[in-house]
Amino acid sequence: MLRRAIENLGSRTIDGVWRIGFAARFFVAVLLHSGTAFRRFGLTIREMYFSGVLSLIIILVSGLFVGMVLGLQGYETLQTYGSEEALGILVALSLVRELGPVVAALLFASRAGSAITAEIGLMKATEQLTAMEMMAVNPIARVIAPRFWAGVISMPFLAALFSAMGIFGGYLVGVQLIGVDEGAFWSQMQSAVDFEEDILNGIIKSVVFGVAITAIALFEGYDAPPTAEGVSGATTRTVVTSSLAVLALDFVLTAFMFRGV
């Protein structure tokens, strides 16, 4: 019984290490074969449509609502201290530093990441990737790398749009609905939000998240067992793994950026 358990642990560990190694090799191969994604930028643009443009609706609507909720909740809390004017700071800083990159990344993982995994997994299951290879076309260069770069490029734009939309939502609720002074709302925000410290760091975060999500989604699709269950399992794993990766990376990045470790 105990021996079985130890054996089980051993084989899982070996599998896990093997998979990490395979994933690392995959990632390096994607980077090495990225030439095509830039030489024939049309391929990347096409994928930006699928991962970026098609994620726009959910990003914009969620951003608006998150901002509106921040406006309401923030006002409730701040007014007990009599500092409603700080609402702009609260909304802007929480969005630009954390919520924008993180929530946009989580939405991106479930909207675009899962779609990427399912697409690549199906291409593999229906032998399209092998067919490509037999046509002397490298699927990493032709299929994987353009999707990777499209995700990496789209992510910061999506995060910025989310934050901008959220600030607009906070403005709608705080200024238009509740009646916080408009001038104070913007000026306090402007004096508190630093370009380098807050906005640039938020952008860096979203780029890192973009890399993590698309790399995980592509790898899960590429590594999926070529069956219906295999692909659906891989899709679920993409959402779970990339969401966890985003949250964990966010902690690490925040620790480095704002605490100056």
Binding site: F157, L161, S163, A164
Partner: peptide
């Protein structure tokens, strides 16, 4: 059509970044 949408997406993204840089954080 696809190129057009991606173009609009990029413009909107850059506009959002500019909004954040200029209006939200004082550059």
């Amino acid at each position: 059509v696809l190129d057009l949408w991606v173009g609009l997406f990029v413009i909107a993204g850059i506009a959002a970044l500019l909004f954040l840089a200029l209006k939200v954080g004082s550059m």
